[in-house]
Design a protein around this nucleic acid. Structure first.
Lengths: 206, 206
DNA sequence: CAAAATTAATCAATCGATTGATTAATTTGC
DNA sequence: GCAAATTAATCAATCGATTGATTAATTTTG
């Protein structure tokens, strides 16, 4: 044991705290205490608090793209690709709910736009992948000619809102995405709804 | 002239700053300078920085409910009510984009849950109104029996995501919601898409 | 009506606490 | 023994909040 180096200790602690308290709400002292490292180590390894934040974001965002591209290259109908994308996307976001919430929170701040430019850029590429799949379906005559970007935004927006406000889909009970049982329940409902909706929306009436 | 009292000066300045920099990122000194009031006035009138924030939120949220209820009570088919709700909802959010972004940003923080409880409560009531309209349509046989809450979340999530990331729907150009021309363009596209999607999703195949 | 008393509004100054960051000294590992 | 890693101590800056004093507006009183 005892194989954890301080640098990753800081990253792990910082991610947890950023998710819970946001960037501004997390102090370097808090990160230091939570990670067991000295305050100066943060600037020693990452230069600044923002340096820590950026390293966390980059690591996560890079992992997102590959998964979608795998689906895109499969030899199945566009319709099935789309259903798969929805399933993977919803699972990915819901499984990392607090990170997703934090990311949108901080990205929505108009501050430091130059810092987030690359991250937004990388995220935007996910859109292209889905766009291509829908275009493929339209070209093959399987899909109606809809507002592609808007349709994608509807899928993403639905997932995002379920993540930020899972209680919205519960008339009475209070769902908790940190509870695995609740999360699986929500995930199933979300995926079923999205697949139903996107198909009724995209598929031509017989 | 000279009819602006300091209290509303503070509210106006604070709302602008909160929208731009978030709650944590806005200092009372900044609010004081922007409003032309003395720092002490903020605590004199509102008790604390959070007091200012809450007063702004409450004022806005209360205005939301009435509009929806008016539509609900109209003597038109559920289908038309729903189309109207989408139109009004989208317009309302897009016209106050920066406020909407700020609200979601701050509400998503798990901090101060007791403070935001009432606001979330009030927002949740909007859901009931829309839910009733869809139930009405299902009862009358006009609508399919879908996952009502999820369908509502899709509408809200789409509007929300267009508001936070309008560039997602623009393949090339950069839309700006502060530009009135861009905003109207986006609004039309958004409403058209949502109305099309919700109808293809809810309406039974002929 | 006008003087006195009271309340509300505003101010500059400053409080202690906390912020992110840096320094210089020390320890560790090879 | 030397470079990398880690520490405690400290920096200036800023934070939200409060103070006591001052002015403006209102109410009360005779």
């Amino acid at each position: 044991m005892e194989k954890t180096d301080k640098k990753t200790d800081i990253l792990i602690a910082a991610e947890k705290l950023f998710c819970e308290y946001g960037f501004e709400g997390t102090s370097t002292r808090h990160i230091a205490k939570e990670s067991g490292a000295n305050m100066a180590m943060i600037n020693y390894y990452f230069g600044s608090k923002m340096g820590v934040f950026m390293e966390i974001m980059e690591e996560r965002v890079l992992g997102f793209k590959s998964q979608l591209n795998l689906i895109k290259e499969e030899k199945i109908p566009a319709r099935d690709k789309l259903l798969k994308v929805i399933e993977k996307y919803a699972s990915r976001i819901l499984n990392n709910a607090s990170f997703h919430k934090m990311m949108h929170r901080e990205l929505s701040l108009s501050l430091r736009p130059e810092v987030f430019a690359q991250i937004k850029e990388a995220m935007g590429q996910n859109l292209f992948v889905i766009e291509d799949i829908i275009k493929e379906g339209i070209a093959s005559g399987d899909f109606r000619s809809v507002d592609i970007r808007m349709s994608i935004v509807s899928v993403m927006g639905t997932i995002s809102m379920v993540t930020t406000s899972p209680n919205k889909i519960a008339p009475d009970s209070n769902y908790d995405l940190n509870n695995e049982e609740d999360r699986e329940t929500i995930k199933k409902r979300l995926i079923a709804h999205l697949q139903d909706m996107i198909l009724t929306h995209l598929t031509k009436p017989q």
